[in-house]
Design a protein around this nucleic acid. Sequence first.
DNA 1: CAGTATCCTTTCCGATACTG
DNA 2: CAGTATCGGAAAGGATACTG
Lengths: 128, 128
Amino acid sequence: MAEMKKNSVRKKYTVGVEAALEVMGGKWKPLIIYHLMTGPKRTSELRRLVPGITQKMLTTQLRGLEKDEIIARKVYKEIPPRVEYTLTSYGWGLKPALDHLCYWGEDHLEKVHGDKSKVLEEFEGSTN
Amino acid sequence: MAEMKKNSVRKKYTVGVEAALEVMGGKWKPLIIYHLMTGPKRTSELRRLVPGITQKMLTTQLRGLEKDEIIARKVYKEIPPRVEYTLTSYGWGLKPALDHLCYWGEDHLEKVHGDKSKVLEEFEGSTN
DNA sequence: CAGTATCCTTTCCGATACTG
DNA sequence: CAGTATCGGAAAGGATACTG
């Protein structure tokens, strides 16, 4: 394994980034993860918290995150049904990466728009 | 601007992440950025370094990165034509975020596959 | 060599209707 | 309430041919 290192160092870097992006990249996953960072949420809460997402997309993304053990899904056998999602400790490990992305992205928005509050307003106003 | 903070903190976070992902996310951009971190490259070099990418995709991604001022494009008026791409200092600002993603992604691969060399082999062997 | 244009396939994703 | 199934449009992306 050691003897391939010289050749695979550059690959390791990008493979790592790509693996991470598969897990937490995309349009919805960062938002979902973020909301779970503020505490466990049930399905209907997430649907409200993530504006514009459809039931289908929400389920799809949650299944993906669950498969990668970023989140845990807990089903309460009640009527009506009740499902709660929580970040796993493994999922919390994404926080530093997300923080850096956020930090850079904020700077970027400021650079691009000069005034980032405008962008925020647009975002908050998105009714979809 | 301060008085909107309580309401926009959670938004800012995700808007930042999403802005960053738009700029450096996706299938090809991290790889391209990474290779430019090892020095300026001309088009044909990048095409070789990024296995599986088509001319079209390479151009598209490079244009996107150039637009966001992550990279700079320098054209030498020679025959045959010669174009060189370099990371801007702004683009270098992505390094910490990419490093974190890489770090987490590596851990993730190890966790998922136990032995990550297998994944690397698969990646290196991708001929497309 | 670098880039553009065209065509065509695949994937993503929203809308809707339905089940336990 | 939570989730599944199906359909169709839109967008991403690959193959190929072509231009300066």
